[in-house]
C-alpha cells in the first residue's frame, strides 16, 4: 500500500521533536502515515504520535534496544519496513538519524537523500531540497528508487497537530545476533538541557574575540536567559584554541545551523564560518572591528567590545522576556 513510514526517534525517554515535524509533513502527502519506534520501555510513548497524524504505530520494545546499536536498530526497522511496504521513509536527520538512514537504505538496496530542508511531492515524483557546500548552495534532488528514503533536517517543518488513528501494533524482532559486531561499552552524555546546535532556535556563538575558555560562561548565561531552545556555538578559532569542544563548532567543518536567531560574538565572519550559519533567520554580530566581514551578513550589528555589550544585553533580554 502506498504510504509513508517515519522513524520516531527516542532520546532521554522522549520522542524527538523532529519526528513530529516529519509526521506532519508525511500527513500532507495524503496517504497512510505509519511510524516505527524502537527502544526499551518506549511503548508508552506511542500514543503521542497519534496527535501528529500518525495512523499506525509499530512498536519494537525490548531490553536489547536500550542503547542505539546501528545493526540492531537496522534489523528491527527493516523488518517493520518489509511488513509495511511504504513508498516513502522519513527520518529526522539528527546525529542518530544520520547514522541510521543510510544504513537502512543500503540494507533495503535503495538510495537515500540526507539532510533535506524541504520536500515537494507531485504524484509519484518526490523532490527534496538540500544544502550542499555547507549551505553555500542548494540542490533539488529527485528520489528515483522504488522506496524513497529521506533524512530531514530538524526545524525544517513546523510541528502540526493532526488527528491520526494511532493504532498501536507491537512487533517482536528476532535479532540475528551473529551480525551484531558492535558492543556498546559506555555512553557518556553530558548533563545538559540545551538542545543540539542543529536543532536550536537560538545560538549564541563565540569566536577568537572571547579571549579564553572562561568567557564562554557569559555566553552560556545569555543562552540560558534567552530560554529553552537556546544554546551556544563557537568558531573554529575558539575550538582550535581548546576553549570549546568540537561539538560546538559551526561552519563548513562543523555544524550547519539555521536557528531563528544567531548571535556572533567576536567572530570575524570567515567564508567557512558563514557557510555554516548563513541561513539563520536573524543574524546579530557583536564585534569591535566595524570592518569585520560578519557585518555584511548581519541583520543587526553592534560595533563595540563584546565584554561591554554582552552583560548589559543579557540584563535587557531578561527584562523584555
Amino acid at each position: 500500500m502506498p504510504g509513508t513510514l517515519i522513524y520516531a526517534e527516542v532520546q532521554g525517554g522522549e520522542i524527538k521533536k523532529g519526528s513530529f515535524e516529519i509526521a506532519g509533513k508525511a500527513k500532507e502527502f495524503g496517504s497512510e502515515v505509519s511510524a516505527c519506534i524502537i527502544g526499551s520501555g518506549v511503548e508508552s510513548l506511542a500514543p503521542e504520535l497519534a496527535k501528529y497524524g500518525v495512523d499506525k504505530i509499530y512498536v519494537v520494545d525490548a531490553p536489547e534496544f536500550e542503547n542505539y546499536v546501528t545493526e540492531a536498530f537496522v534489523q528491527a526497522f527493516v523488518q517493520v519496513a518489509q511488513q509495511v511496504k511504504p513508498d516513502i521513509i522519513l527520518a529526522s536527520a539528527t546525529a542518530q538519524g544520520k547514522d541510521f538512514v543510510p544504513a537502512i537504505a543500503a540494507r533495503l538496496k535503495v538510495g537515500a537523500i540526507s539532510d533535506c530542508v524541504d520536500l515537494t511531492k507531485d504524484g509519484d515524483n518526490l523532490v527534496a531540497k538540500r544544502p550542499v557546500y555547507a549551505g553555500k548552495a542548494y540542490v533539488n534532488v529527485e528520489a528515483t528508487g522504488d522506496t524513497k528514503i529521506l533524512g530531514i533536517r530538524p526545524n525544517s517543518f513546523a510541528v502540526a497537530e493532526n488527528a491520526g488513528a494511532g493504532a498501536v501494533e507491537k512487533v517482536s524482532v528476532d535479532l540475528d545476533s551473529e551480525k551484531i559486531k558492535v558492543v556498546v561499552n559506555a555512553v557518556e552524555i553530558a548533563e545538559s538541557d540545551e538542545p543540539d546546535q542543529t536543532e536550536a532556535e537560538i545560538i549564541v556563538s563565540g569566536g577568537r574575540g572571547m579571549k579564553d575558555a572562561e568567557s564562554f560562561a557569559m555566553l552560556e548565561k545569555l543562552a540560558k536567559v534567552l530560554g529553552p531552545g537556546s544554546t551556544t556555538g563557537a568558531s573554529r578559532a575558539a575550538v582550535d584554541a581548546g576553549w570549546r569542544d568540537h561539538a560546538y563548532q559551526v561552519g563548513q567543518t562543523g555544524k550547519t545551523v539555521s536557528p531563528n536567531l544567531y548571535i556572533a560574538c567576536g567572530i570575524s565572519g570567515a567564508i567557512q564560518h558563514l557557510a555554516g550559519m548563513g541561513t539563520s533567520k536573524v543574524i546579530v554580530a557583536i564585534n569591535k572591528d566595524g570592518d569585520a566581514p560578519i557585518f555584511s551578513k548581519a541583520d543587526y550589528g553592534v560595533v563595540d567590545d563584546l565584554f561591554n555589550v554582552v552583560p548589559p544585553f543579557t540584563q535587557e533580554v531578561e527584562k523584555v522576556k
Binding site: 540542490v139 529527485e142 528508487g145 543574524i283 551578513k297 543587526y300 550589528g301
Partner: peptide, 20 residues
C-alpha cells in the same frame, strides 16, 4: 544512482542590515 540532481541554486543574498 537512486537520485538525480534537478537544479542547483544559491541561497538568497543577505544584505548588510542595521548597525545599532
Amino acid at each position: 544512482p537512486m537520485s538525480v540532481v534537478k537544479s542547483m541554486s544559491l541561497p538568497p543574498a543577505r544584505e548588510a542590515g542595521k548597525i545599532i
